[in-house]
Each structure stands twice: as structure tokens, then as C-alpha cells.
């Protein structure tokens, strides 16, 4: 009997710890639907006032980059230092820039 049993689908939980801050992955929960996923996330991941807001999303709906693509995806950004403010030389004495 327990062979066909299951534990409900898996959901990923993202929590915003304070308004204005980005949502951060907190972990996952099992739940039969979105309403219960939200409640379970609240009960499991905010027991110590960790959050002001929660997102839940079915784990199956998350698309992740492949570790094999790591170089192609992320290394090209390494030599584009001009995207960072420290790349630029400012005249001595200039303020508020």
C-alpha cells in the first residue's frame, strides 16, 4: 500500500526577510497545492520571524543552468571590467561622483 503512497509535490520556498530586500531561497516543502504550499512554507520556514513575505514555486518549474555550461555562461563577463565603476579614472578632487 505504502508503495503507491507519496508525499505530495515538492515546492521551493523563497523568503523576503525585510521589506525592500530581495527574496532568498530558504529550502523546500511538500504540499498538495499552492495554498497549502504557502501555509507549509510559513509554518516551516518562519518560525523565528525570518520573513515578511513568501514565494513558493513548484520545484519542477525551476529551470537551472547546467554546470557544464558554466564557462560559456559566466566566464565572458570576467573581462568586461568596464561594467564596474572602479574601471574609470576620475580627476583628483572631484566629489560626489
Amino acid at each position: 500500500m505504502s508503495k503507491q503512497d507519496n508525499q505530495w509535490p515538492l515546492w521551493e520556498v523563497f523568503i523576503q526577510s525585510k521589506t525592500g530586500l530581495p527574496y532568498k531561497h530558504a529550502g523546500s516543502v511538500h504540499a498538495p497545492d499552492k495554498e497549502m504550499a504557502l501555509q507549509n512554507a510559513r509554518d516551516v520556514y518562519t518560525r523565528r520571524s525570518e520573513g515578511t513575505s513568501i514565494w513558493v514555486v513548484l520545484s519542477d518549474n525551476i529551470v537551472a543552468s547546467n554546470p557544464d555550461d558554466q564557462e560559456a555562461f559566466f566566464d565572458p563577463a570576467n573581462d568586461k571590467v568596464y561594467r564596474h565603476p572602479t574601471f574609470y579614472v576620475m580627476p583628483e578632487g572631484a566629489k560626489h561622483i
Binding site: M1, S2, D5, Q7, W8, P32, D33, M36
Partner: peptide
Amino acid sequence: HDNGAWVREAAEAYARKK
């Protein structure tokens, strides 16, 4: 776990209906 089987099934059945 066994006593909870019907509860888990009920919640799933409800989700499917909705």
C-alpha cells in the same frame, strides 16, 4: 504514516479537482 494516508490522498484529490 499509515493513518495519514487517507489525509494525504484527500488533499491530492482536492488539488486535482480544483
